[in-house]
Design a protein around this nucleic acid. Structure first.
Lengths: 341, 341
DNA sequence: TTGAAAGCGCTAACAA
DNA sequence: TTGTTAGCGCTTTCAA
């Protein structure tokens, strides 16, 4: 239950134990080929026997190379970012680069702080969610002299590179699909549109698509805190109490949408004939609901993959050109809750 | 779209720009009081204007202090670890310590690798899920000379300190509660019990409690991959097809349980009278289901909090004694799917 | 209150 | 193939 207060071992300790110079030990431990098999084995066995763990702090300082990629995202409990992380990890795990995550809770001040912390470790690149950042944050990213990939969103101007989808377009396309399916009295339910720029852009695109066809959102319902599933339930109930004539509900994400869907199934609504439902994100957790919510894939894993590839390419060849904007194309999945046009 | 290939600024740059020695600049930036207000302001304005971000690599090497806490967990998409992280962050964000997360995917080899990587950054402490580790992993943790807190589980011997619940006891208590409620033909559904030691321990405790009352698990159903909600649905259907006489189902977690619950509601089962259901974890995401699944709180946030406090205490006073084993007490929530005894 | 010197543990660059 | 030398950018320590 107690531990020996050992000073961590250094290269010098291994050097002395193996009778090989520090430099050669270092070479062996980094697999730099040019070492004879004999000394290699000698060093390796000594290092392993002693339980030596190299000090990356010192290594990084000396080599001016830090194999970390800062990944800065608003939240982890969200269902969307774990998948982005999966994409990132998948790419980086075949390389020496390692992702390190920072969470901003959708707060610009916290983003600034987290960014500062991460940059002070001099990572090899930054992957950061969104295109909206405070001026100091933008300045830091500019000045860092490392590749910066802004992810999730392409509606705006990236600092360096961007990989994502156009949320404005996503909203617009869902709006059009809903109109094509013949729905006309449409309600919107979602997170309070403030910090979440992407949800806001979807909303804007959505209303824009309706407006083009002379239709206005009939009613809206917003929430800010609490379990999304429960909120979906409550909000759906209250919007339909207010406007029983609605024939379609567009949710800002699948989880609230699922809450609404469950409630409406219980209430016996005739879905998708009398009323349609649609969400956003294509959350796999929800496979297993009584029926499949119409949704739009937000390409999360792909976004992570592409972003990581950009960083990796730069790490391997630092004068590669910036990737610019990479806009992926999400597809609508009609599920069981939207009539086909 | 392109960035100036600036060499990152150093203390020396700020020193020259402000006409103050490097040493004094360093003191100002670290808020070490003993600096005159005049120079303080001079330095601060220069640093801000230039956009200087300190190099923690160099700082850490010089001071032999790294304010990072390694947090090593099996998965993030899991609903359980995000909450643990919340508890940890809550405590650490008032301190200079910062959590850094590593993911093992429940693979011992990957745990070993991740641990090695993290330890090579010489963190101030390690928080690691579970009590089961490979020999090399244990050796590394022993030799690191930093506080190690093993979390989630207390059924076993910690390397240094442990904070968690007894999963064996959790299973036992749920078993007893189910028996007290009068259920007798009991099925178990869950993840394939291999890598997930805590699920296995709950299963063992559960069967043990039944055995003490002369009852054997009537049937079991295991899964390894896919959406937990969908699997819950499928497994429930298939176990009840095989054994329509079952009067209670115990799930290894709430998400599979919820899948089963949704399916059974659709099928019109009489819950909790004819058949009871229970899960594990008290996942808040599920608030909003048609009815509340019986479950057991696994104290996730509290575990994170306590673990972080142990590391923090050691960081502030390194000769504090080890915290030993801290066993929290989970409570059963009967919800709507288990008769009260 | 400020500065100068030394060195944290490692690696780049060069020499042998 | 191996070793030597000189830092990486900061902080510690001690002197002014």
């Amino acid at each position: 239950m107690s531990k020996p207060p050992t000073r961590p071992l250094t290269l010098r300790d291994v050097s002395e134990a193996s009778g090989v110079s520090e430099m050669t030990v270092s070479r062996v431990l980094r697999n730099r080929g040019d070492v004879s098999e004999a000394t290699r084995l000698k060093v390796l066995s000594a290092a392993k026997r002693m339980g030596y763990v190299p000090n990356k702090i010192a290594g990084a300082l000396a080599s001016q190379r830090v194999n970390l990629v800062a990944v800065i995202i608003p939240s982890m409990s969200n269902m969307v970012f774990p998948e982005v992380m999966t994409g990132i990890s998948r790419v980086l795990e075949t390389s020496p680069l390692q992702p390190v995550v920072g969470i901003t809770d959708y707060l610009p001040e916290k983003e600034e702080k987290v960014l500062y912390e991460m940059l002070s470790w001099r990572p090899s690149g930054v992957i950061i969610a969104g295109l909206e950042h405070s001026d100091p944050s933008r300045a830091m990213l500019q000045a860092a002299g490392i590749p910066v990939v802004e992810i999730m969103d392409t509606d705006g101007s990236p600092i360096d590179a961007a990989v994502g989808i156009s949320h404005r377009r996503a909203g617009r396309e869902m709006g059009r699909a809903i109109l094509r399916a013949g729905y006309r009295k449409i309600g919107f339910l979602g997170t309070r549109l403030g910090a979440d720029h992407r949800a806001r852009k979807r909303f804007e695109g959505f209303t824009e698509a309706l407006a083009k066809n002379g239709i206005e959102i009939a009613d809206t319902e917003f929430y800010s805190e609490g379990s999304a599933l429960a909120k979906g339930r409550e909000m759906t109930q209250s919007i339909l109490a207010r406007r029983p004539d609605l024939d379609c509900l567009y949710y800002s994400n699948d989880i609230v949408g699922a809450g609404g869907l469950l409630w409406m199934i219980e209430q016996g609504y005739d879905i998708p004939n009398k009323i349609g439902l649609a969400g956003f994100n294509d959350v796999s957790l929800l496979q297993g609901l009584p029926c499949k919510l119409a949704t739009m894939d937000s390409c999360r894993t792909e976004i992570g993959r592409r972003a990581a590839e950009i960083i990796l390419a730069h790490a391997e060849n630092s004068d590669a050109p910036s990737a610019g904007k990479v806009e992926l194309t999400p597809t609508i999945n009609f599920g069981d809750t939207l009539r086909l046009s």
